[in-house]
Design a protein around this nucleic acid. Sequence first.
DNA 1: CGCAAGCTTGAATGCCTTCAACCCCAGTGG
DNA 2: CCACTGGGGTTGAAGGCATTCAAGCTTGCG
Lengths: 249, 249
Amino acid sequence: MPTDVKLQVKPFTCDTCSIRHRAVCAHCDSHELTILEQMKFYRNFSAGQTVIWAGDEMDFVASVVEGVATLTQQLEDGRTQMVGLLLPSDFLGRPNRETASYTVTATTDLMLCCFRRKPFEKLLIETPRIASRLLEMTLDELDAAREWLLLLGRKSARERIASLLAILCRRDAARLGEPADGRRTINLPLTREAMADYLGLTLETVSRQMTALRKDGIIEPAGKRNIVIPSVARLVEASGDDVDGGPLI
Amino acid sequence: MPTDVKLQVKPFTCDTCSIRHRAVCAHCDSHELTILEQMKFYRNFSAGQTVIWAGDEMDFVASVVEGVATLTQQLEDGRTQMVGLLLPSDFLGRPNRETASYTVTATTDLMLCCFRRKPFEKLLIETPRIASRLLEMTLDELDAAREWLLLLGRKSARERIASLLAILCRRDAARLGEPADGRRTINLPLTREAMADYLGLTLETVSRQMTALRKDGIIEPAGKRNIVIPSVARLVEASGDDVDGGPLI
DNA sequence: CGCAAGCTTGAATGCCTTCAACCCCAGTGG
DNA sequence: CCACTGGGGTTGAAGGCATTCAAGCTTGCG
């Protein structure tokens, strides 16, 4: 396991944790939370660091507290596809699996709330509220993966970019408890290369299509890593998705 | 909900059911099985029939007993992407969700072992072994979806076809409890169009690449819906995947 | 037979990739 | 102070792979 940047000494309590009501612990009562509180430990990674390599032994599971991490898969010749984008409150790791199936990378500074895997597995059996929340989150992730399949299988480069930005809009709005419409400013925590790995494109194509969306007024650059969406409706329209019953997560 | 072809009157008992040890009921003890036995009802569909349309109310969940079903998603202009391929023992439906998220179609004659959704949700709370098996199956499906993302994002048409055939090999071998290597004959329950929807290609491209694989001796036609794989190893090689630690499910 | 569904094959087009050059900027060290 | 360097990004030109459009084949069936 890679070395941590620094090991924080439980700077937070679950009560005041920013992901308390959305993470795997969301439905816990105060007693259950006490147990988690005793088990948890934080690990921090700086942008660019690898959290774990595919195939390595993985003796913990975790919730993303802050920052963004990616799961990636590779073919033998180096072709890379992102298969997971973990934002705050998302769950990392698989109970009852010894080794990591995917390479996990911090794309921004990252804080994880970790649990050793074995005790967590025991907790899953004893604490139905955690197990049922994990099932719910896994089903949500499966839905997200299926939206992603549609994106990779059938959407044009332009639609893919617009879809990714729309997803980030939606997640950001959900996190803040705001409606995902009108004018929004979002943080873009991915490089062109990471976006390309997400979208099944090359970084050149991503760059070109970002330029095109900018020229069409769908997006406006706002500093180094921020983007203004003047009209979320127009962005969603450009994504090719149905405007109403939009995708989940 | 579409009309059933015929409503079978519980022709089977769970004891002798062919998916008994792989479906959502796999870990149930005899008492739990009795409860399921009383709840279950079978529904049959013939090849080509739609089981449910995306957006329709869905008041049941089910296990696939026999046959193959697909989940598909569409964009407004009709572009279609398959997002799920359900084989015997796979689970259909989502607890705590009122409406179907995807259109479900029987691509062969299909038999489902159904449970009304509400009682099943109650059972999930009361029967941890069912809940934990459903979590396990959902995590497996998520892994499969992630393999699929790699396929759609980064593989060539030829590699995609080979990957699909390799997946069918693996599933078939797992069902029969045999090793997935050497020479194998598999049933191909999909039309060229359904394969194209799975693979994010057009049916013409699928046809061309099937021809190419045949000319290269990777596959051999064997009757209308069967294919002989002379060497699974060569097929996997053509799929672009790592030969050892192959993908899951 | 005639028709429709499923499949194959050919030719032309187009979207994305590949390869390459160049820009910007922050960090670094002579 | 400023040249140097490397990471991240943009843009151009050429090429390739899959798509699109089209024609024709095979098979099962009313």
